[in-house]
Design a protein around this nucleic acid. Structure first.
Lengths: 119, 119
DNA sequence: ATGAACTATGAACCTAGGTTTATAGCAACA
DNA sequence: TGTTGCTATAAACCTAGGTTCATAGTTCAT
């Protein structure tokens, strides 16, 4: 698969695919180079990028995720596990915030919050 | 109350308070000027800013929120309500993403996901 | 009444996460 | 064989959300 195919299958712009690679977000096992230097992606990259998208969209930063993905850093499973646990707890904080926000927004709509009157 | 008091009570840096004001995030009713041109905040601003923090932390952008807050725009209640409804539905999308991410992260930790093997 | 601490403003600066541009090497098809 | 299209890289650019800096006026404590 060439970069344009991957872009179409994942919905990620070509520029973003190159950017992610530069940031070490894409394991070497998933992208090689052809003789003409074109990127050749394995089929699995699509699922991988979809997982990546989910994680990046709400919680992980590019840098954090690259720590998990980049093999050259040689982080142990224990270290990675700690990172993941940490991240799960961060996600739970965000979920808490979201519940608060929703409650607040509902209250605004029902005219129960005084946000309206202040605005 | 002066800016330093508000900063301490909300945890927001002074620079951020001035920044939010510049972005029309703080209604005129909550902050006036003294004869020396110092900002004088009403007590209610603390609760207001805490609500703001919650909303900004996870879903609203500064610009979106200023649309809701800025009175000079004179948006009708109907329009604001639409925005809030829209935002609630966006929050629900994010909640969905978060649930997906958490599931994925748990799977990684239990060695069930092949994210590990790819990394 | 003077030095330290607080406040004000505008402008420059910063980071993350990309996107755009300039330039050049392959490819595919009539 | 040329022209249209895909790919490559490095570097410049962009936006959001702040933060820092330079400069200047105010206030408080001693």
């Amino acid at each position: 698969m060439k970069i344009n195919d991957v872009s179409k299958l994942t919905g990620l712009p070509i520029s973003t695919l190159r950017f992610y690679e530069r940031k070490n977000l894409i394991p070497d096992t998933l992208v090689k180079r052809d003789v003409n230097n074109y990127r050749i992606y394995s089929e699995e990259v699509v699922e991988f990028l979809n997982d990546l998208k989910t994680l990046l969209s709400v919680d992980f930063s590019v840098e954090e995720l690259s720590l998990l993905v980049n093999q050259e850093l040689n982080l142990t499973y224990e270290v990675k596990k700690k990172m993941v646990e940490q991240k799960i707890s961060e996600i739970e904080d965000v979920q808490q915030q979201l519940r608060k926000s929703k409650k607040f927004l509902y209250a605004i709509m029902e005219g129960k919050a005084d946000f309206q009157t202040k605005c």
